[in-house]
Design a binder for these strands. Sequence first.
DNA 1: CGCGTTTGACCCGCGC
DNA 2: GCGCGGGTCAAACGCG
Length: 271
Amino acid sequence: MVSGSAFAFMSLGLSQQSHFGFEVDLLYFFCGYVTVQLMRIKLFLIIAGVSFSYSLIMLHFYLHSSIDQRVQQDQDSASISSSVELTNTSAIPVDSHRVNDLGHQQQNEGISEPRVEGENEGIISRIGIVRQPRVEGENEGISEPRVEGENEGVIHRNRIVRQPRVEGENQGIIRRNRRVKESRVVVFQTASDAIDILDDGYRWRKYGMKVVNRNPNPRSYYRCIHRFQGGCNATKQVERASHNIRVVITTYWGEHNHDVPLQLVEVEAIQ
DNA sequence: CGCGTTTGACCCGCGC
DNA sequence: GCGCGGGTCAAACGCG
Ligand SMILES: [Zn+2]
């Protein structure tokens, strides 16, 4: 029976291998190893098995319930105030789905596992939206990371962004010290094995890539392609989470001041 | 040749 | 002031 339970632990660890990071896999392996050692010395077998199974279950639930918090902590020091939705149960294939209106897209409600077994399609979940900056001092800390029925998750972050430089005249004299508070941030979390960039209908140009915050995966910076023609200053950042290689976090900054450009399929449909 | 990506340098705010 | 972390620039490069 004890060997059977140990085998169950090992198989559980192997089954979780593709969903969590390397450290968690190491932790599972260590738990299995400790179980085997306890089998060898024949000491407190049943108690150790029960305690280890309990700790594994608690670890599993902790990882499951705090994935959105860790996403936000990895993003930067933003803290989630109340009512952040994490409804990534809608298994929307990234290829066939275009997020046309990010601010008003409704996700279905109801919680389930933040991962889809045996599927390669990405699942999209909107973490939060900031429409205007908030004053620090209220709603400190992380509370209620999972609220049912709320469609407007709010992340308050008083991030200071630089004003874009005025092009074409007097370069060198123009100071960048005008700072505004960004008023709109949309964070998406996508679980995908291969697809990093979800097609939202807009055309982006990559302008930077940086390894940040001890995350082995670099963060990519994109700008809207109409920045120099139409003055659109919408940007987005795409990175993979450090703790889970399958989670892709897409952060949108600013809003477009133009319409969604036509896609190739639509151009072909017109012709 | 035009357009988009890559990638090292640069800049800037912030903490010590 | 200095180092560090993170965002941006821009020359080089690649590709149709
Ligand atoms: Zn735009």
